[in-house]
Design a binder for these strands. Structure first.
Length: 554
RNA sequence: GCGCCCAUAGCUUAAUAGGAUAGAGCAUUUGACUACGAAUCAAAAGAUUAGAGGUUCGAUUCCUCUUGGGCGCGCCA
């Protein structure tokens, strides 16, 4: 939390400054706390003076000098001293008290895998529903679903760790045309296998898995009139989807069936009535239209078709009302970019229902294309041409697959090059990080044979950790919680991945220069051992939050 | 045609609300295992941030245009 500490302390200093110059400015000031550029003796820098100078119309240099003198005159707990940047732009360079680094390491050692949890203040805790994957049960998961799955899973873990209440949900579209076509596809394949001559239409599901299902049904010995093709097909496909997710070690708290909104409670009807009474619905060409344009959509949308059927959109509104009615304060949807055009209408609808626009957060990720043998393969379930997620996991492993996604910004398009992924798997950053833990554990194991090692944290002299490599490592450790906060703000776990790589880098450098187990220096050995233990704890928490397993040996 | 998104080193990419000299990894070149695991470390080289304007103390980031790519524009789901 080191950046947060510094930020808090700076806020106090700024208040002092503002009262000193009799400013009545009460605006919230957003300033950055950055790691200082290389080749300075300072640890962090802030642009606070520049930001303030803009608001008050004073020269940044003057503001900076005033703030710096307040910092240097007072005895602060986190900031040791401050100085103006070399070019005199108005940046304030900050040197921290090393004590806070040692203190933070002690926090890590005391709290172990709970470190960083519950740093959210009570009134900021949200009850979050996060919906992801939600692939239609019309075929196996492919690589694109894997990206959504990895993202949702990691984000959930991070938000939970920070102290939010999070529920993971999979929305299952088990209604509509596509289901009818799916059932008929299986039935046709079944009859084909029974020896009938059939013509298999082009717009039916072409995949091999449909034939597999039909085969299974034949083996069951049931007569054709005894078989519920829709039920059996969905059951089979769903089972496969669950298996794939299990392989990635991803479990959902809820499987929400679209049909449940229509069959039992008729929630769709209720929502439409409500919207109608609120005056948001009109009739045109014998269909019911929702005036989503009023809330920023490109055009109005149909809720009930002229043939009396509901549209997908109508049930989706009911679904989202259902989410909020269950008491969730924040609803997160993770969608592929092909759904981007759908955001405006859904946001319109939830506002009509009286919910805040911001309580629904939609995270888009760009679609994944796959390169195999230098050929690009686009994913299409209907045509049956795709590489399944299962194949990828088998080829490159579940940890590498997940990390491959989590290392990148979700908004960047990326081509999953199968050959490259396999080739790189040996030099993959995952192993770089995991190797840190292996080295940590190895040292800790070897230390068992040493005598007089101090184990009581309170008796260890952490001030012995003074080399450049030790300090850099300690600093990196103390940034962990700041990174988690950034992941929360940006809703993007890739900052954590990058942080772990950076931490690994600092650790390997430390490992090369600072021998831990020294026969002639028990106090230093003990202190360094605790540092190693701290690193191991953070690596373990971090990888766990990303959903990646960590072996003690490799 | 309209809308959303993307473009950074040969390749894969980073940059938290506009901050200082744009960070990494792979590949290339060089050096380090008689110190806790060399799946590592040290070093070299590699960038006009697609192009052109604009906004300002300051732009990869914001605005406009151009080029190249992805996705979406149903009474489908």
């Amino acid at each position: 939390m080191i950046k947060q500490y510094i930020r808090n302390e700076l806020s106090i200093v700024i208040k002092k400054y503002l009262s000193k110059i009799n400013s009545l400015n009460n605006d919230v000031i957003y300033f950055t706390v950055e790691i200082s550029p290389k080749n300075t003796e300072f640890d962090f820098s802030t642009n606070a003076a520049i930001i303030i100078s803009k608001k008050l119309n004073i020269k940044p240099k003057e503001v900076a000098l005033d703030i710096i003198s307040i910092i240097n005159e007072n005895n602060l707990s986190f900031i040791n001293k401050a100085k103006m940047d070399v070019n005199g732009i108005g940046f304030i360079n900050i040197k921290i008290n090393k004590e806070i680094l040692y203190k933070e390491l002690q926090n890590i050692l005391n709290q172990k895998n709970k470190y960083g949890s519950n740093i959210i203040k009570n009134h900021n805790i949200e009850n979050i529903l996060i919906e992801f994957v939600s692939a239609n049960p019309t075929g196996p998961l492919h690589i694109g679903h894997g990206r959504g799955a990895a993202l949702g899973n990691a984000l959930t873990k991070i938000l939970k760790h920070l102290g939010h209440k999070v529920t993971k949900e999979y929305y299952l579209n088990d209604v509509g045309n596509q289901m009818t076509i799916l059932a008929k596809s299986t039935e046709l394949r079944y009859r084909e296998l029974k020896g009938e001559k059939i013509i298999f239409p082009n717009d039916y599901y072409q995949g091999q898995y449909i034939i597999d299902i039909a085969n299974k049904l034949i083996l069951s010995g049931k007569k054709i009139y005894e078989i519920d093709f829709k039920y059996e097909t969905i059951k089979y496909i769903l089972n496969n989807i669950k298996n794939d997710l299990r392989k990635l070690n991803i479990q959902f708290d809820n499987w929400f069936y679209e049909s449940s909104l229509i069959n039992k409670k008729n929630e769709v009807n209720k929502v439409i009535t409500f919207l109608y009474n609120s005056g948001f619905i009109y009739i045109k060409n014998k269909a019911l239209w929702l005036s989503t344009k009023k809330f920023g959509d490109d055009k109005d949308r149909v809720l009930k078709k002229s043939n009396k059927e509901y549209t997908y959109f109508a049930t989706d509104i009911a679904y989202h009302k259902n989410k909020f009615d269950r008491g969730f304060t924040k609803v997160i949807n993770i969608w592929g970019a092909d759904h981007s055009g759908y955001i405006a209408r859904l946001k319109s609808a939830i506002q009509m229902l009286g919910f805040k626009k911001t309580s629904l957060k939609i995270i888009l990720y760009q679609l994944v294309s796959l390169i195999k043998n230098k050929q690009q393969i686009t994913m299409s379930t209907r045509s049956g041409k795709f590489i399944t997620l299962n194949q990828i996991i088998n080829d490159v492993g579940e940890n590498v697959t997940k990390f491959f996604f989590l290392l990148r910004n979700p908004m960047s398009q990326f081509e999953f090059n199968l050959e490259l992924a396999k080739k790189q798997s040996k030099e993959n950053p995952v192993f770089y990080i995991q190797y840190v833990n292996a080295r940590c554990k190895s040292i800790i194991n070897n230390s068992i044979n040493m005598h007089n090692i101090i184990k009581d944290i309170n008796k260890i002299n952490f001030k012995l950790l003074i080399t450049k490599e030790e300090i850099n490592l300690l600093k990196q450790l103390s940034l962990f919680c700041d990174i988690l906060k950034i992941c929360e703000i940006t809703m993007n776990p890739n900052h954590l991945s990058l942080y772990l790589i950076k931490l690994s880098d600092k650790y390997h450098k430390f490992y090369e220069t600072c021998k831990v187990l020294l026969n002639n220096n028990v106090p230093l050995t003990s202190a360094r051992l605790k540092l190693v233990e701290g690193v191991s704890i953070i690596i373990k928490i971090g990888l766990d939050l990303l959903g990646i397993e960590i072996p003690n040996k490799m």
